[in-house]
């Protein structure tokens, strides 16, 4: 729970290495042409993993107070809410883009 977590240099380099590898993978999978929509799923999944690694180990949320974790989760939840409910409209319109 302490806010003063000190990571070792080795650990930080390890985190960065993992991120570099994931960056390479996300580029590499585009070479093998995964069919729609799985290519999007894979790309987003890798990005999410990368983001979580940054949040947990660079931003030290792993060792941080629970409320800061909650704040982060809350921002993601409300972002998903914004997207989810808007898509309820835009995906289900009879005439997708109203013509004037």
């Amino acid at each position: 729970m302490s806010g003063h977590h000190i990571s070792s240099a080795k650990f930080l380099w390890g985190v960065a290495l993992a991120l570099f590898v994931l960056t390479f993978i996300t580029v590499a999978v585009t070479w093998i042409q995964i069919p729609e929509p799985w290519n999007i799923v894979v790309a987003i999944a890798i990005a999410v993993v990368k983001a979580l690694i940054v949040v947990a180990f660079f931003m030290n949320l792993w060792w941080d107070s629970k409320f800061n974790v909650l704040l982060f989760i809350m921002s993601i939840a409300f972002f998903l809410l914004l997207i989810g409910i808007t898509l309820l409209d835009t995906l289900y319109r009879v005439d997708p883009v109203p013509s004037f």
């Binding site: 409300f78 809410l81 409910i85 309820l88 409209d89 835009t90 995906l91 289900y92 319109r93 009879v94 109203p98």
Partner: peptide
């Protein structure tokens, strides 16, 4: 309060599914 914004748009041309949910 974050779940209901579409009730301002009932006549704006959003989908009827969204209308009902909102």
């Amino acid at each position: 309060g974050f779940l209901v914004w579409g009730h301002h748009m009932f006549t704006a041309g959003q989908s009827s599914l969204a209308n009902m949910v909102f």
